[in-house]
């Protein structure tokens, strides 16, 4: 494990974890909710990578998708509405040894937590971020979210949403220091899994937006794409997402996209109704703030006391 110092020097014998070892409370999402498939994908990834449950932390905000940590049998922090990012960044700041996932929704990330989202992208700390975007506030019963499409009706806009929707991929690609930006759909488990796996393997903040079905309020948005794979466009590239090839044959439309090409990524991201999935952008050159925040970990008490004396010398009479 990288970056470990004295505080974490514990000899824990490795053990073999099965899928059950990552399964927490029985999920209470609605039947048909896309969150179930994301949960399954993360649990499978944890098993396949043999992530140690005690060294895995899932941080979330508030909303349907933010119940996610309760359904994992790892450490978890179910935080405040919009505030998953500061919590997760804080967890990461002094713990290079943990695997940290952030699960957030379109209201949580793109409305009340927007400032934190933008700055977390800029901090580029090693986090795997899953934005479960169902285009609606579900838990509070169908209010317009920033990603709700214009004209869509909700309890706060009964005559239809009046504004163009916010495009989370475009916003993220516009933030300096973004290092991994991908998009996938919850109803195709192989691509979902492959995307989350690539995100987890990336060092830095990996941002994955998942088009996520809400069976109650927005099923009509996603149902056409779910029943017609021709409505989905897959980005392909040797450096992109590698999902099971047989399973990917389902999708007739492809576009070759080099994930190192930011300009092209921004152009592709523009059409938010096209269901473009795959890796928009990836860079290993971005500054990582956690490398700064974790400096000095593992100093001994004696060293600290000695340093304190030197610090006090500055004020000595």
């Amino acid at each position: 494990m990288q970056g470990l110092k004295k505080d974490w020097e514990v000899e824990a014998p490795p053990r073999e974890c099965s899928l059950e070892d990552y399964m927490g409370a029985e999920p209470r999402w609605c039947p048909g909710c896309g969150d179930h498939s994301v949960l399954g994908a993360v649990q499978r990834l944890a098993r396949d990578k043999q992530l140690q449950p005690e060294r895995t932390v899932v941080v979330s905000g508030i909303g349907c998708s933010s119940r996610f940590p309760h359904y994992m049998k790892t450490y978890g922090f179910h935080g405040l509405h919009g505030r998953a990012f500061p919590l997760a960044c804080g967890v990461r700041s002094r713990r290079p040894d943990l695997d940290i996932f952030v699960v957030t929704g379109d209201g949580d990330c793109c409305a009340i937590g927007t400032a934190h989202w933008i700055h977390a992208i800029r901090y580029n700390m090693d986090l795997t971020v899953l934005l479960l975007d169902n285009n609606i506030y579900g838990l509070t019963k169908m209010q317009t979210s920033p990603t709700t499409r214009p004209g869509e009706r909700s309890n706060t806009h009964p005559k239809g949403s009046v504004l163009p929707s916010l495009n989370p991929i475009q916003v993220t690609l516009g933030i300096e220091n973004a290092s991994f930006v991908a998009q996938t759909i919850d109803w195709h488990p192989p691509h979902l899994y492959a995307t989350i796996k690539a995100a987890h393997e990336h060092r830095g903040l990996s941002f994955v937006r998942v088009y996520q079905r809400c069976p109650h309020y927005t099923s009509h948005i996603f149902a056409p794409a779910q029943s017609d794979p021709g409505k989905v466009v897959v980005m392909t590239h040797p450096d992109g997402i590698h999902a099971d090839e047989v399973a990917m044959k389902l999708f007739p439309h492809r576009v070759n996209h080099d994930p190192s090409n930011l300009e092209e990524a921004r152009k592709l991201a523009k059409d938010d109704e096209a269901f473009i999935i795959g890796l928009f952008y990836k860079s290993d050159e971005c500054a990582r703030y956690d490398q700064a925040t974790s400096q000095g970990i593992g100093m001994t008490g004696m060293e600290k006391v000695a340093a304190m004396e030197r610090a006090l010398d500055r004020f000595a009479l």
Partner: peptide, 21 residues
Amino acid sequence: VGGFVHQAEDEIAAIGFAIGA
């Protein structure tokens, strides 16, 4: 002494970051 000052994007993020740590 091996410590770090994080200047957050706002007051809310500052305490959230501290709680996370």
